[in-house]
């Protein structure tokens, strides 16, 4: 059986949409370990969402393979097991909540998997607590803010006790406070529960908080490494249709103007330290 530490292993992964000439995902090799936080970046149409959907058997590889906790997504029999191990939160908060009451929506996946009612109750409570939405258990989803809806969607996944949480641009439609809520929740689940996270996003600042970053371009992995390694390649990242965090950008500008500042600054905190160091030197 597969190594306990590996949650997701993709080998030579390819996927072509029916009737499409080119592969949307083309020869991807990747691995997500237990408790790891991976961010996937890429411009629209780079194949990152397709990749995400290959990770929980929503799509089946046209070549190569994906193992989720050792389970091969090509095996029809394993599909539901795989989806329980790797849960997915989608982009539009309105289009993924099935029920008309929050707690009943959180129950949806458990009901599908035939979990006994008493246990469902327990797990809903636990999941809603984990995303800080206990007070909203009886509320109607359409009365919630975008960030709250996404947290409900996360609770619906967490209730299934997954090993991997995949977020497919789940923050794209949220306002800044909603994004903050979701990111804090995801980080807490990652750190406290040891759930591996695969975060697909357009926001560089979110990717900067990941353990690893993977940049997709034309279905292939174009860049990979820690956020620091990836974002310090400002020109390369830009050429891939992406951006770098504002502070990395500032560091880049300053270096171009001859100011000796570290090229791999990501956050305001780090920039403060860099500038203070600079001011002491002169």
């Amino acid at each position: 059986m597969a190594d306990q530490e590996n949650r997701i292993v993709a080998t030579d992964l390819c996927y072509a949409y029916p009737e499409a000439a080119a592969n949307a995902v083309d020869g991807v090799r990747m691995r997500v370990k237990r408790g790891e936080f991976l961010a996937i970046l890429g411009h629209n149409g780079s194949g990152k969402s397709t990749l995400a959907k290959l990770l929980n058997a929503l799509y089946v590889p046209t070549r190569g393979s994906v193992l989720v906790c050792g389970l091969d997504t090509r095996d029809d029999e394993l599909v539901f097991d795989i989806r329980q191990h790797a849960g997915m939160v989608f982009q539009n908060p309105d289009n993924q909540i099935v029920a008309t009451v929050v707690e009943e929506d959180v129950a949806f996946g458990l009901e599908n998997n035939g979990v006994p009612p008493a246990q469902i109750r327990e797990r809903i409570d636990e999941a809603l607590r984990a995303v800080n939405m206990t007070d909203f258990a009886k509320k109607a989803p359409h009365m919630l803010s975008g960030g709250q809806k996404q947290r409900v969607a996360i609770a619906g996944i967490i209730a299934m006790r997954p090993d991997v949480l995949i977020l497919d641009e789940s923050t794209a439609m949220l306002d800044p406070s909603g994004r903050r809520e979701v990111m804090q929740t995801v980080h807490r689940l990652n750190e406290e529960e040891g759930i591996s996270v695969v975060l697909i996003t357009h926001y560089m600042s979110e990717a900067a908080t990941a353990d690893y970053v993977l940049v997709m371009d034309e279905g292939k992995i174009a860049l990979t490494g820690t956020p620091r390694e990836v974002f310090s390649q400002v020109e390369r990242v830009r050429a891939l249709g992406l951006d770098v965090p504002p502070m990395t950008d500032l560091a880049h500008t300053l270096r171009a103007q001859g100011v000796p500042i570290a090229p791999d600054v990501l956050t305001v905190d780090e920039m403060v330290e860099e500038i203070c160091r600079l001011s002491l030197k002169t």
């Binding site: 959907k53 929980n56 929503l58 539901f80 989806r83 329980q84 849960g87 997915m88 989608f90 289009n95 993924q96 099935v98 707690e103 009943e104 129950a107 949806f108 996946g109 458990l110 009901e111 599908n112 998997n113 035939g114 979990v115 006994p116 009612p117 469902i120 109750r121 809903i124 619906g156 996944i157 299934m160």
Partner: peptide, 19 residues
């Protein structure tokens, strides 16, 4: 929605329990 339901292991009414 269909995709979200599928991702949450929806497979029709059989063997389904209820909260």
């Amino acid at each position: 929605l269909a995709m979200a339901m599928e991702a949450r292991c929806y497979r029709g009414g059989e063997h389904r329990t209820r909260l």
